[in-house]
Structure formats: structure tokens, C-alpha cells
Nucleic acid binder design. Structure first.
Length: 593
RNA sequence: GCCUAAGUAGCUCAGUCGGUAGAGCAUUCCCUUGGUAAGGGAAAGGUCUCGGGUUCGAUUCCCGACUUAGGCUCCA
């Protein structure tokens, strides 16, 4: 463990020096460029520039060449400390650096700053760095992007150059390979190739059309999801897609979230002067709360667990939309748990157990846990009392610690209405995907005046938890596509079996076994095209169908099928009943095949 | 929303230094009846994203819009 940390530190230093090398190269090529910042990041490094003339991707190789040339000069990287005023003089032509120096002086009361020098390029920098340019490992510039100065959208947009560097060529190559592999698994590409979904300009950006294939998979997920919820005492409900403005005023959405909502539908009304306003729901909670509030509730009824596959619409900024991962209309696998104080810890633990089990069924054995806390610097951004926040954050922390799970605190990651536990699924390439979130809500129970009658006959305020396990059907299915590279395990595969008759003469037999499987709820297709068997196999492989059944005269005689599994060779003939037993087990046990 | 790119047949992509476009696969039809990743042939398929401008003429040049992508910011 210590050794690994040490290794990471070295890599970080190496990348940081690589970012300085990048800046040095850029300055030699375009001396008038203004510099932003250039840190090492998780998978590499970047440097932000304000170019006089914009550059393009085509310039990256040229910059790389220049970097290589500077690296070979065997330059010693030196460090010195100077007084603030001296630094201001040195960077008088670098407005962003100057701003940084001023910030350091003002906010942190710093009197001296350190400078690192690589050849003729000297940069304001905390360090540390390698000793010599020659020690910088093999590097590669990856992409060009816009980035706001200091990450603030009110500031100027700078040009960011992303790159990466490793200690050895081998490691760099394997990382570049990883990027290539990730690109192959891109759900948008696979979605098109396998006819899974589309987004149509005439419908609108961020709105998904689910094609039959992906809908079949979604249906399986939803059935499984409902079954597991029933088992755990959840009640399934349905709620409308729109609601009056009053509802959203009460919930606080019109105050806190209006720019995230689609504009209202205005209805004329004869009796009223004002138009009636309906909003499309950005969340399901108000509806769940009103079901709860439909009559008085006893402490005996709690916990109440309402769940719904609720489709919501949020007007996300156009720039954040991303295939099925970030959309404007999506179906949350939502639930609201209304619990007594004494039930809170147990219920959170139950949700965590549930989340783990569900994720496992989809091949996500590894999850990363994040505890989203309030930003203590900005307390007025949140609703709810100080005591409530402190208690809630402490309780969530204790739950995680008692479970002995490793978790990371995400300070400032809490919603305005409460802290949360978030789980990120780690996929087969090691990438993390946000899915499960368990959020406490201090806001709505109060705004909607939710109560229950306690043992003492008096009214009490319940605690409400929002939670999704999968996140949204859209994002989750996109994650699955990337996780499996489109080759879904049998239980999730849109088409589980492709029946391939060798010639027209075997078509009848093929039809017969196809119908038999349809009766047993197996998703099967008969390839009755006038094509050669080889071509049909090839197409079925491209469609990533897990089982191909080749049937010819030989099979027909023995009431058999020749089985071929996705990505493998002919497994030989077997009795149809044996195959049926096999696939039924795959499905029942949710085997990862 | 902002920065930088891209948009040609259902898909993957050529192409036109300004004279309205082509391949492979897919589709339809015909021939072929085959044993584990492409049998052969023919036909059909395009407002070259959309709207302006320049021009005798724009898919190509210029301007704008839309969509998509990589980021920033934000998030299920």
C-alpha cells in the first residue's frame, strides 16, 4: 500500500513536469501565449493557455515534437523562492499568473512564492518537480478543450491541452490501448451498430427512442427490479407526468430548480384571470408525498416504502447532454422511504444491502462509496437546521464505518436538502459510473408538513429518504452496454437464441423449436433468410446473440440442435431438451455468460 | 450556456480547386439448397443537416441556425 502511494507520487511529479514541458514548448512556438495553470490529474496532465491565434488538433503533433526536442536538451529543473513583489515583476506580462500571485498574497497572506525553471521557461509553481527534463517519461498529447479560467463560467474561456505521461513506454501504450478499448465500448456506437436506441432531432435533444432490442433488455431489468422491491416490502405506485404550479411551489422546485425545468404549459380558464400553469415533473417526490399525506398515518405504518419507475424531465444545459448517459427525459428507479427516527439506521443499511445485491446481478461486483457532505464554507446554500445536518452527517458516517466499507468524503457534494451516500459501480475497464444514491431530505417533509401519529398520540415529523439504486434506466443501460461491450449475458440479451436452419428443407424444424422456445418465454429469432449458414452465423455473431442453434438434416433426425456460443466455435450437437435446460439455468441464475 | 470540431444513401466512408455525386455493406428481386464468421447477379436508394448571401450556376465559398462529439460548468 505504502509502495503504491509512493509510486503514485512519483507519477504525479513526472506528469507535473511534463505539463511544464508542454508550456515551455508552447511558449517557444507562440511566445505571446498567456499561461493559465498546468497540474497533474488522475490520468495525465493539462495546461491552460490563452493563445493569440486559436490552435487546432493538427497542432498537437507539432507541439509534441517540440516537447521531445526540449526534453532532449537535458535541462536541469531548478527551484527558487522570490518575494511576492519580485514575482509580480517577473510575471508582469502574464495576467493569469499575476492574478494567482495576488490571490496568494490576499487570501493566504503568503510573502514568498516558489518558481520552477525549465530551460528559459520559469513558472509559478508549488512543485515538486523532477530534477532534469530528460527524466520526464514518454508522453502523449491527447486532446484540446475549452476550460473556464478558475472553473468559473463567468470567466474567460482558455484553451486546455490534455496529455498524459508514464514512467515507461509500455505503461503509456497500455493506457492508450485502454482509451481505444473504451472507445470500442462507447454505448453510442454500439447503440447504433446493434439497433438499440436513437435520438431524433425532430423529437428533441436528450430524448431517447428505445428500439425493440433495448426495450427487451429494459423489460427484463424492470421485471427483476419490481420483484426484488416487492420482496423487500416496497409498494409500487404510479404518478402523473405533470402537476400544477402550486405543487412545485410547495416542494421548493420553483425556487431552487426552475431553470432545470421545462417551461410551463399554460391553460386558459374562463373563471380565472390568471392562466393555469402545469409543469412537467423533474422529480417524483411530491407525488409520493401526497399519497402519503392522503390520510393520517400511524407510527405503526412506518416505514413506508413507495417505489416507482418514474419518468422525469429536466432541461439540462445543451452542452452536458451525452448519449444515454446525460439526457433530458429519463426514468428513475425511484423510491421514497418515510421512516421514524428509530428506523433510520436500519433502513439505510437495508438500502445499501439491496444496492449491493442488485449491482452484483449486473456484473458490478466492485462499488466505490462516496459520502456527500455539506460545504462548510457555504452553509447558506442548504436548507435545514444546523443540528439536523450535523446529526445526519454523523449518522451516515457511522453507518459506513460500522459496515467497515472504504469510502471517500465528497465535501460540498450534498444536495441543498440533505447529505447523501452515493455508490459508483466500477466496470470491467475500471471506470466508475454513478448509479445508487441515497439522499436524506430535510426540505420536503417540512414544506409538505408530513406527519405521523406517534405512540403518544401526538404528531411527529418523519424522516424521508430519496433513493435510486440503478440511477436512471437510461444511464444504467448505457453503463451496461459499455460494461459488456454490447455482449449482454443471456438473461439480459435482447435476443437470446438465434435459430439457423442450414437449408430451406430444415426451415420447418427450425420453426418448430423456435415456437417451443417462444412458449417458454425465451427471446428467440429464426433466421429464415435465403442465405448460407456461414453468413447467418456471421450476422448472429455481429448481433452478439449468445446462443446460435444450427439445425440441419442431422439435427432434425435426432430432435437435436448444434449449439454455438457467442465468440466460440461449434460445441457440437445435443438434445434440444438438454439445451433448453442449460439456457433456462443461465437465465434463472443470471449467469454472466 | 461557453470553447473547439464535425454533419454526403439505413450504416461505414470516398469525392467535387464552384458545373446538383460514388463504393462496400444493408434493402428488394432472381439464381443458388449450402455443415460453423461474407455463394453469384440485377434493381432501387441522395433537397450532399437546414436557412440566408456571393455567383450565370453552391453539396463545395461566406454568414447564421440546428444537431452531434471532446471538454469546462452542472448532474440521475
Amino acid at each position: 500500500m505504502e509502495e503504491q502511494k509512493q509510486k503514485l507520487k512519483i507519477l504525479e511529479t513526472l506528469r507535473h513536469s511534463a505539463s511544464h514541458l508542454l508550456a515551455a514548448a508552447v511558449l517557444e512556438m507562440w511566445p505571446e501565449t498567456k499561461l493559465g495553470i498546468g497540474p497533474a490529474i488522475e490520468n495525465g496532465f493539462y495546461y491552460d493557455f490563452d493563445f493569440k491565434e486559436p490552435i487546432t488538433e493538427a497542432d498537437l503533433p507539432k507541439i509534441e515534437e517540440k516537447m521531445a526536442e526540449i526534453k532532449k536538451r537535458n535541462l536541469t529543473i531548478t527551484c527558487r523562492e522570490v518575494l511576492i513583489n519580485e514575482a509580480k515583476e517577473i510575471f508582469k506580462d502574464q495576467p493569469f499568473k499575476l492574478e494567482l500571485i495576488n490571490d496568494l498574497e490576499k487570501d493566504e497572506g503568503i510573502k514568498k512564492v516558489s518558481l520552477y525553471k525549465l530551460g528559459s521557461f520559469e513558472d509559478l509553481c508549488r512543485g515538486p518537480h523532477l530534477e532534469n527534463s530528460n527524466l520526464i517519461g514518454p508522453f502523449k498529447l491527447l486532446s484540446l478543450a475549452g476550460a473556464y479560467w478558475k472553473g468559473n463560467e463567468k470567466n474567460k474561456m482558455l484553451t486546455r491541452i490534455y496529455g498524459t505521461s508514464f514512467s515507461s513506454q509500455k505503461e503509456l501504450d497500455s493506457y492508450l490501448n485502454f482509451l481505444k478499448e473504451a472507445e470500442l465500448r462507447n454505448h453510442r456506437k454500439i447503440g447504433k451498430d446493434l439497433d438499440l436506441f436513437s435520438i431524433n432531432e425532430n423529437v428533441g435533444p436528450g430524448l431517447i427512442l428505445w428500439h425493440p432490442k433495448l426495450s427487451a433488455t429494459r423489460e427484463v431489468i424492470e421485471e427483476y427490479w419490481r420483484k426484488e422491491h416487492r420482496k423487500r416490502g416496497y409498494q409500487y405506485i404510479y404518478s402523473p407526468h405533470i402537476g400544477l404550479d402550486n405543487l412545485w411551489k410547495t416542494s421548493g422546485h420553483l425556487d431552487f430548480f426552475e431553470e432545470g425545468m421545462y417551461p410551463p404549459m399554460l391553460m386558459e380558464s374562463k373563471d380565472k384571470k390568471e392562466k393555469t400553469r402545469y409543469f412537467i415533473k423533474p422529480m417524483n417526490c411530491p407525488f409520493h408525498i401526497l399519497i402519503y399525506k392522503n390520510r393520517p398515518r400511524s407510527y405503526r405504518e412506518l416505514p413506508i416504502r413507495y417505489c416507482e419507475l418514474g419518468t422525469v424531465y429536466r432541461y439540462e444545459e445543451s452542452g452536458v447532454l451525452n448519449g444515454m448517459l446525460r439526457v433530458r427525459g429519463f426514468t428513475q428507479d425511484d423510491a421514497h422511504l418515510i421512516v421514524r427516527e428509530d428506523q433510520f439506521v436500519e433502513e439505510v443499511n437495508k438500502v445499501l444491502d439491496f444496492a449491493l445485491e442488485l449491482n452484483k446481478a449486473f456484473g458490478f461486483d466492485k462499488l466505490k462509496v462516496y459520502l456527500s457532505l455539506r460545504d462548510p464554507e457555504n452553509k447558506d446554500k442548504y436548507v435545514g437546521s444546523e443540528e439536523n445536518w450535523q446529526l445526519a452527517e454523523k449518522t451516515l458516517k457511522e453507518i459506513l464505518e460500522k459496515r467497515k466499507v472504504e469510502y471517500r468524503e465528497d465535501v460540498g457534494g450534498a444536495k441543498f436538502y440533505g447529505p447523501a451516500i452515493d455508490l459508483k459501480a466500477v466496470d470491467s475497464l475500471g471506470r466508475e459510473w454513478q448509479g445508487t444514491t441515497i439522499q436524506l431530505d430535510f426540505n420536503e417533509p417540512q414544506k409538505f408538513e408530513m406527519t405521523y401519529i406517534g405512540k403518544d398520540g401526538k404528531e411527529h415529523a418523519p424522516i424521508m429518504l430519496h433513493r435510486t439504486l440503478l440511477g436512471s434506466m437510461e444511464r444504467f443501460v448505457a453503463t451496461l452496454i459499455e460494461q459488456y461491450a454490447g455482449a449482454f449475458p443471456v438473461w439480459l440479451a435482447p435476443v437470446q437464441v438465434k435459430v439457423i436452419p442450414i437449408s430451406e428443407k430444415n426451415l420447418e424444424y427450425g420453426k418448430k423449436i423456435t415456437e417451443k422456445m417462444i412458449e417458454e418465454n425465451i427471446r428467440v429469432e429464426l433466421d429464415d433468410r435465403d442465405e448460407r449458414m456461414q453468413a447467418k452465423i456471421r450476422d448472429a455473431e455481429h448481433e452478439k446473440v449468445p446462443y446460435m442453434l444450427i439445425v440441419g438434416a442431422k439435427e432434425e433426425r435426432g430432435n437435436a440442435v448444434s449449439v454455438r456460443m457467442r465468440g466460440e466455435k461449434d460445441l457440437g450437437p445435443q438434445a434440444f431438451s438438454d439445451f433448453f435446460k442449460q439456457i433456462s439455468e443461465d437465465i434463472d441464475k443470471k449467469r454472466q455468460v
